[in-house]
Design a protein around this nucleic acid. Structure first.
Lengths: 160, 160
DNA sequence: CGCAATCATAAGCAATAGCCTACGATCAAC
DNA sequence: GTTGATCGTAGGCTATTGCTTATGATTGCG
């Protein structure tokens, strides 16, 4: 029924993602922010977060590995990290006005470059593409992970 | 003009790609083929290739790092690697009947799992999504890389 | 023939990622 | 107040990746 003669989704998406990341890098460099730092800024620009662990989870990073990133951002005055008076273990995380400014500048730079990629697409496909991505990335976090939960049919590997 | 209120493309695509790769892994494991091996099989299933360097470039891998992969595939009888009689430095690479069989089984497994992801999307967006990806991945290889070549506007980082 | 280039291969190096453990500070529950 | 859990932080371990160099076999050019 499916004359679905295309390559695997991952095989097609992977090079595109790589290219996009490469595209972002110079923009990030120009603002002295690392990729993870930018990820943190976008998360905090949406809403402040109460603990670093929660932040890490929100951006899909490792709890122990964003510390350096947070240090950098704080040193640069882009975020604040204040001990929660109600629970002095936790650090209230928030973006600063400057952080917001930088984040927006970076996003603008990235957008204009993404434009050069998207402009290759027919308007209809482009709309569907962006919309599909928006929907997929709006899925509850677990939903994506759950996809790997199906029985595998087919012949087993040569007997170990 | 652009009320373009979405996240960055890379930020949206990255988790999806990760999920897709995670989805593929069990299928690959069930057939005893590594990710790179599968990539090689799909490339060779399209057309035989004359040198390993050309293959590496075709699948975006490192020339020196696919050797082990090729060894494995050859040992498993999925590909042949015969010295080119016309240029004994080169190895003619081709997929075997068994390799083709395995590759198709893997692809089928992956497809059925991708289906579970794509089924989340409205038909229109889904079509646009797949078509956009197909178009993007059909671009001449250099075109994607060239996207990173624009001047970066915005304020520079704090003076080093 | 002799030289430079090409191919497959082996080996190493630096950076990064994911993962895990440990530890001090703090809190909540009892 | 003692116990157990949570939070931030530090450190280490392993696997992977991109990149580089070196080597032997082979080719094509002059």
């Amino acid at each position: 029924m499916q004359s679905d003669d295309r390559r695997d989704l991952a095989a097609m998406m992977y090079p595109v993602v790589r290219a996009l990341l490469a595209v972002e890098q110079p923009v990030l460099d120009a603002h002295g922010v690392a990729m993870w730092g930018y990820s943190v800024l976008t998360a905090l620009d949406r809403t402040p977060i109460r603990t670093q662990a929660a932040l890490a989870e929100a951006i899909g990073a490792d709890k122990t590995r964003i510390i350096g990133t947070l240090d950098d951002l704080q040193d640069a005055g882009l975020i604040t990290r204040t001990p929660d008076p109600d629970d002095r273990r936790a650090r209230l995380l928030a973006i600063t006005a400057e952080g917001r400014r930088v984040r927006r500048a970076i996003t603008a730079g990235i957008r204009s470059r993404e434009e050069r990629l998207l402009s290759r697409l027919p308007a209809t496909d482009r709309r569907g593409f962006v919309r599909a991505l928006t929907e997929l990335s709006a899925l509850p976090p677990g939903d994506l992970a759950d996809l790997a939960e199906a029985p595998v049919s087919g012949s087993p590997p040569s007997p170990a």
